[in-house]
């Protein structure tokens, strides 16, 4: 299994009492599989994604990435995990405005010392970025920026790709085009995909769907 989630709970401190966001969530994701997580706003789907990306810590239960349990890891080890095995694509793209496109694409892979120029070139060609490599993010449209974010995430050749509403900032046409490209490239790279979306249409494009309600899987 690339990702195993077992009975994970998570609560945030509230004004009078803690607010439980996840109340014992479990799921599995094998290599090459894709899983869509849907749910209403506040259902905890983004929180679950952040936990899976080792961006945040959980209260109980266990999450394993490629067999490594996250509960015992310190900040440094979790950062190392993010550099190599896990990649993220955010709704807000989160490109570095002061780096050009080529540098943005290679950044994550170079942080993890696994930059493969051929693979990078292949990704930018497939994502239609080849002619934009010396531009800066602010000079690109939203759809282009999201494709850069996808290229950056896949350049690492992650075992697990996490995507949080990756097309949330795009219109419908751009959205489905970007989704198709992403799915194709994910399967080409052999990564497992764990995607959070509120769109049923997008969820249907993935192998499996999981619905989160009040912090629990249904």
């Amino acid at each position: 299994m690339v990702l195993t989630v077992r009975n994970v709970t998570k609560a945030y401190p509230g004004q009078t009492q803690d607010i439980a966001v996840l109340r014992g969530v479990s799921l599995d994701l094998a290599a090459g599989q894709s899983l869509a997580l849907t749910g209403d706003s506040g259902s905890g789907k983004s929180t679950l994604l952040h936990l899976a990306g080792a961006l945040d810590t959980f209260d109980s239960g266990e999450i394993e990435i490629c067999g490594t349990p996250l509960s015992g890891l310190n900040d440094t080890r979790r950062a190392a995990l993010r550099r190599r095995d896990v990649s993220l694509v955010f709704q807000q793209f989160n490109l570095i405005p002061s780096l050009d496109i080529q540098q943005n694409i290679s950044l994550h892979a170079r942080l993890g010392n696994r930059w493969d120029a051929d693979w990078g070139r292949h990704l930018s060609e497939r994502l239609g970025l080849a002619k934009l490599l010396d531009r800066y993010p602010e000079q690109l449209s939203g759809g282009q920026q999201q494709r850069v974010a996808i290229a950056r995430a896949l350049a690492v050749r992650p075992k697990l790709l996490l995507a949080d509403e990756p097309t949330g900032n795009l219109d419908e046409t751009a959205s489905s085009a970007v989704m198709e490209l992403m799915l194709a490239l994910v399967s080409e790279s052999g990564a497992a995909l764990f995607l959070v979306t509120h769109s049923a249409a997008i969820a249907q494009m993935l192998d499996r769907q999981l619905h989160l309600k009040h912090g629990q899987t249904g």
């Binding site: 990306g53 961006l55 900040d75 440094t76 950062a79 190392a80 995990l81 993010r82 550099r83 190599r84 993220l88 955010f90 989160n94 490109l95 570095i96 405005p97 002061s98 950044l107 994550h108 942080l111 993890g112």
Partner: peptide, 12 residues
């Protein structure tokens, strides 16, 4: 934003 992204990308 840059700092947050870099941390997200695994920079300790």
């Amino acid at each position: 934003g840059l700092i947050r992204t870099l941390r997200g990308l695994g920079v300790p």
